[in-house]
Simulated scan of single mutants.
Amino acid sequence: MKVVFAGTPEFAAVALQAIHEAGFDVPLVLTQPDRPAGRGLHLQPSAVKQYALAHGMPVAQPLSLRMDAKDPQRALEAKQAHELLLATDYDAMVVAAYGLILPRSTLDIKPCINIHGSLLPRWRGAAPIHRAIEAGDAETGVTIMQMEEGLDTGPMLLIERTPIGPHDTTAVLHDRLAAMGAQMVVKVLRKMEHGIVEAVRQPEHGVTYAAKIAKEEAVLDFSQAAREIDRKIRAFNPFPGAHGSVNGTVVKLWGAELLGAGSEAPAGQILAADAQHGIVVACGTGALRLTELQKPGGKRLPAAEFIKGFPLEGLRFDTPA
């Protein structure tokens, strides 16, 4: 089979590598335009583009695939991309975290399959890994689905599960699901080659939507239960980074441990901040031991190192406005 690939970040690059190493011909790769990144805000190619160029794959980076886009430049680039797809000899398109909506005109050319990081129909949408951790789900997984115009509504071709551990962060789970999805999409492409793939409609019950993460969500409110705060810290690691403030100074929190015992102290009160006990904070229900923190302009540090340069004992995390 000849496979057109559409994707942008590292999650997608892992899948592209697996497809390439499995021996599939990739005559075209679609990815998002280069974006400013780093301290100098220099234009940086996506992880998918870097892999494609390193392996001699043609790359296109349209701003949009919608030929009815109101912006003339986007409409023109969409038309050019559509013509390029029509001129490309391929059997199927694989889409993984592309970042652009595929219109009906694209979906109608050849079969399009998507690698989605959740157990559909739970967590359709932009941020399924973050939301699964934040919600306290016991498990998640990857669904390979046939794409249609609805948001992650297409029939399922393959689904595999993995537990969400008590210390799993979005970063950890992302890498696990990326590896799973890469191997799964190769399995599905092999089945498609032999005409034995089976499509199963998604259940009508259990649908939830994983809204895109907004930076303001990462502000922690210690009046919530310790368990909920722990989930947020793990869900927002590495982006956007959960944080609170102490005396007006923003402190990012990258790791925590649940403590069984609660406290009558006000929520946000730092109960301990020393080498023996670590950094312990009272919550609305229960308490948390913070294990990795970061102050503005500083590095991520273990709690014992952090308090050497930022004494916290007796202080309190501010209440969000």
Rank of each mutant, 00 (worst) to 15 (best):
K2H: 15
A6I: 01
T8V: 07
T8P: 02
L16F: 09
L30C: 08
L30Y: 03
T31Q: 08
Q32M: 14
L43V: 00
P45A: 09
P45L: 00
V48S: 04
A52N: 06
L53K: 02
M57Q: 06
P58I: 06
P58L: 12
P62T: 01
R66L: 08
R66P: 00
D71M: 09
Q73I: 10
Q73P: 00
L76R: 12
E77M: 06
H82I: 05
H82G: 02
T88C: 12
D89W: 09
Y90V: 03
V95W: 00
L102R: 02
L102I: 09
R104C: 03
S105V: 13
L107C: 08
K110M: 10
K110A: 07
K110S: 06
P111M: 09
I115W: 06
I115E: 02
L119H: 00
A127Y: 03
I129G: 01
A132Q: 08
E134D: 12
T140E: 02
I144Y: 02
M145W: 01
M147C: 03
L158D: 11
I159E: 07
P163R: 09
L173W: 01
M180R: 02
G181F: 02
A182P: 05
M184R: 01
R190G: 01
V197H: 04
E198H: 14
P203D: 15
I213Y: 07
A214N: 14
K215N: 15
K215D: 15
E217S: 14
E217C: 10
A218N: 10
V219I: 15
L220H: 05
Q224I: 04
K232V: 05
A235R: 03
P238T: 11
F239N: 08
V246L: 12
N247L: 13
G248D: 12
V251T: 08
V251F: 11
W254D: 07
G255V: 14
G255C: 14
G255Q: 14
E257M: 12
L258A: 10
S263Q: 10
P266T: 13
P266L: 11
Q276V: 11
H277R: 15
H277F: 13
I279S: 01
V280S: 06
A282F: 09
L290N: 10
T291Q: 15
K295V: 15
P296M: 15
A303Q: 14
F306E: 08
F306I: 12
K308I: 12
F310T: 10
F310E: 04
R316N: 01
F317K: 00
T319D: 12
A321G: 09
